[in-house]
């Protein structure tokens, strides 16, 4: 347990970024329904299942044009 406390200064901000990415990606997916490929359900699963990389992947290659 003590070992873990050492990493608290990292874990909190990383968790914040991760949640912010996840939340913005999910909101974006729910509000837009155009994707370069795949569909809404697929991207939701990817974003929720794969930490950090999922939402980044969505914004980089999954998001359709407006």
């Amino acid at each position: 347990m003590e070992e873990l406390f050492k990493y608290i200064p990292f874990l909190i901000p990383i968790a914040v970024i991760q949640l912010a990415l996840l939340a913005s990606a999910v909101v974006h997916i729910l509000r837009h329904n155009s994707f370069r490929f795949g569909n809404r359900l697929m991207w939701l699963i990817i974003c929720v299942a794969v930490n950090i990389i999922g939402p980044v992947l969505y914004f980089v290659i999954g998001k359709g044009d407006d």
Binding site: F10, P13, I14, I17, A20, L21, S24, H28, I52, V56, F59, V60, K63
Partner: peptide, 18 residues
Amino acid sequence: ATFRLYILLAVFLLFGML
């Protein structure tokens, strides 16, 4: 508007911590 800015900032902030 295309989220490019936020993604870059977030990813690099993450690398800075990781």
